[in-house]
Structure formats: structure tokens, C-alpha cells
Nucleic acid binder design. Structure first.
Lengths: 150, 150
DNA sequence: CGTACATTCTTGAACTGTTCCAGAAACTCT
DNA sequence: AGAGTTTCTGGAACAGTTCAAGAATGTACG
């Protein structure tokens, strides 16, 4: 199913900005809104900031995109929506990459007690340093390490 | 060790705003900066916004506070820093509560492959609805459910 | 118990990422 | 093609947080 069909299938109008955003995020997974805007403007120079945000919202609501919001960094978007996977985030530059869960069934993702909350999803974020920031080419600001994984 | 000793022990000056912030977060775990500001001003009416942010930063850097930043909600602070625990966040009102991991050792928190990232911590956030929002007293805006836990 | 210096606090403005608003333009269905 | 809804543009607004300069305070030392 190509992007046009994908959009129609969700009852969304097929517009140039939407196709461009989908294509961009396909090419640049984990792109920020700003990155998307810049990339889309290479083909469609008049596209506005709002158009990009509207499109990102529409596509996210339709389930074509997944939004990642690492603390302290702008939101990022990816097209991997079917499976459940997690993310590593670089403390230095905010770079994001995918991480598949090491185990098939994750016991710790079934919380022991939820204080009466109805839980519908669990989200795991790994924090660390990406190769580029570790390499010293772009020395990352070092933050304190908090909450080690058990 | 009382709060004064705690501050001195970390080489921090003991000031009224710092003591008030510590006391407030002890009383109101998971408070936002704004909540802290309001609570502190009951005792110290002249405390400024920056004082609160500065204090929250200083105490967080010193390891006396832990900062939680749920996507789409203002940051929250807690004094439980010694152990590792996770959080449930209400999609409706942003309320946060503690969740202890169901298992002692968490296999899924050891990522399978980290694309060259050096991982120093893992963070689990459960998303759901708190009793108040579910109860209909304050009907929460319903967002789409994403990324179910496996 | 003063004094000196570094640190912290106050006030006020600025900033980033995102959203709201109104009207113009574009797309889809008939 | 025409009608009507949806989406786009442009500009302003917004929340939460941070920056900047100077005044005030806490701590260490004599």
C-alpha cells in the first residue's frame, strides 16, 4: 500500500503536504517537526509551520505516525506504528533510535499496583549517549545519571 | 537527617526557599513547579518564580529531588530518589503516581541492541486514566491509545 | 562577632516548541 | 463544473521554562 492509498484508507484527503511529510519521515525516522518542515520545503517551499503541525497531528491521530516526546527535547515522529518498540535517547543531542524489547513478554510492563489508575500503555525510554556525542566530535553536556535500571 | 543537614551534606547553602521547597515536595509528591511556587508562597510570599526553578534545579542536581517530565505535561518533582521506581501518568489531568516494578530484576530494561548508544538508565512510564478522571467528576479528554505494552 | 566574598534571590524580559485564529485556497463528491 | 467541507497560509498568542543584571543573603575566615 503506497502513501496515497494509506491516506485514503484512513479517510484522509490526499494533499501534497501530507504526502511530503509521510515521505520525509519514511526517509528520516525520528525527525522533529522542524526537520520535517525543512525537508518538506525543499519540494514545497511555501508550506507553513502550521501545515506541518496540522499534518503531523492528523497523521498521528490516524495512526500513520507515532509521536515520541523525550523529556527536554522537541517531539519526534516515526512511521513504525504496527509493532511495539522502545527508544534510546541521547542526553547530549536528543538523537533517538529504536530498541526492540529483549524479551517477548515483558513482566515489568505489567505494573504491580497502579493506585486505581486504568493503565492502557507502557512506554520505555533508555537514556544514554549516542556514538557521535561519545566520540567527542560534538562533546555532549554531561548530566547527572539518574534512576539506573534496577 | 533533617532537611537542613541534607542540604549541608550536599554542600548547598541553607536558605528559606530551599527548605520550603523540600518541605512542600515532601508533603505534595509529584508537585509541579507551579504547585510548589504557590505552596511556598504561603509561608514566603515574596519568593519569585526563578527562585523556585533555581531551587528545583539545584536540589535535582544535588540528587535530593528527582524530576519527572511526562510528555505534554509540565515537569513534576519527587523526593523518592534512592530507589528505582516508575510512574503512572493520567492522560486526562497529568496526575502522577508511583509504581513499583512487578519484578525484582527487569529483563526488558536491558535493551537487546542499542545502536551504539551507551545506555545509563531506563525509564518506564505507564499511561492511563486516574480515578478522578475516570469517575466522570472531571471528564478527561480522550486521546487515542498508542503503543500497548507488548 | 564582624567582614568579605561567593552564592542565591528578585524583577522583568526573552525564549522554544507548539497552538489558536481568521480568512484564502484546495480537494472531494455530486 | 459547482458546492461544501476540509486544509492551508500568515501572523499572533501561549505555556513552561530560562536568561540577565543587580541587590540581598549565607558562610568562612580572621
Amino acid at each position: 500500500m503506497d502513501d496515497v492509498e494509506l491516506l485514503r484508507h484512513r479517510g484522509l484527503r490526499v494533499t501534497a503536504p501530507r504526502r511530503a511529510v509521510l515521505a520525509t519521515i519514511g526517509r528520516l525516522p525520528h525527525a522533529t517537526a522542524e526537520t520535517v518542515l525543512r525537508a518538506v520545503r525543499e519540494d514545497l517551499p511555501t508550506v507553513s509551520v502550521q501545515a506541518v503541525y496540522d499534518v503531523l497531528h492528523a497523521l498521528t491521530d490516524a495512526g500513520l505516525l507515532r509521536r515520541i516526546e523525550p523529556a527536554g527535547h522537541p517531539a519526534r515522529y516515526e512511521r513504525r506504528v504496527a509493532d511495539n518498540h522502545h527508544h534510546v535517547v541521547c542526553r547530549g543531542c536528543g538523537a533517538v533510535d529504536d530498541v526492540d524489547c529483549a524479551v517477548g513478554h515483558a513482566p515489568c510492563l505489567t505494573p504491580s499496583s497502579t493506585s486505581g489508575f486504568t493503565v492502557d500503555s507502557a512506554e520505555v525510554t533508555y537514556w544514554g549517549t549516542c556514538p557521535a556525542c561519545a566520540g567527542g566530535t560534538t562533546p555532549a553536556p554531561v548530566h547527572d545519571v539518574v534512576a539506573p535500571a534496577h
